[in-house]
Amino acid sequence: MSERYNQGIRIEGLTKRYGAGDTAVDALKGVDMQVAPGEVVGLIGPSGSGKSTLLKCLGAVIEPSAGRMTLGEQIIYEDAWKIPDLRALRRDKIGFVFQAPYLIPFLDVTDNVALLPMLAGRPNAESRKRALELLEALDVGHRARAMPSQLSGGEQQRVAIARALVNRPPVILADEPTAPLDSERALTVIHLLEDMARQFSTAIIVVTHDEKIIPTFKRIYTIRDGRTHEEAGEGR
């Protein structure tokens, strides 16, 4: 195991069981995965293979039944043990990008992005300054005062990416981020994520079905029947 991967996100033998007794279903059966800082990996698999369950475990939304997950040097889960405040972990250490942008409709673009640092207790002015920097970096700085409903789909997704990055999380989980976009925009979003991963040393896991973007990944995890298989991608 290289030192590089120790700084990213790593899971070992992750298991998730729903129900008990005869009706128990193992959605994840000892999944192993590791993503280094600055790396973008794909997570693909058919419906019902356990992608969403894995994403929820990685996102500290549901707790695995067994296994280990670390984020940098911090242990998140280890069998029955978990860190006490998963909410703060999600806020400070994990960024989310969804299939739809899910921006808060009553906040303008800047405050949608600045909300996370504000929730973490940072001053409003500092949070907004950081949000504006990110929006500029993502080329949507000119829409900073607009409401989400005034943005195009691509602009909304960029704002969502800015929101995921604003707390400088070591890991970003992107759930079908290109699903509603055409090929050109989908590739733009993926390149944007790659740039951001490099720029901010963030490990990014992209769950996708999208055939257009799969070739862009250097590494791909395929999940089937609750087990992952790692393979090299076509990306450079």
Partner: peptide, 16 residues
């Protein structure tokens, strides 16, 4: 509901 789910996912406290 969806916005509330997003708010909770990104770490907003129940109190908020």
């Amino acid at each position: 509901i969806r916005e509330i789910a997003v708010l909770k996912l990104i770490g907003t406290k129940n109190r908020t």
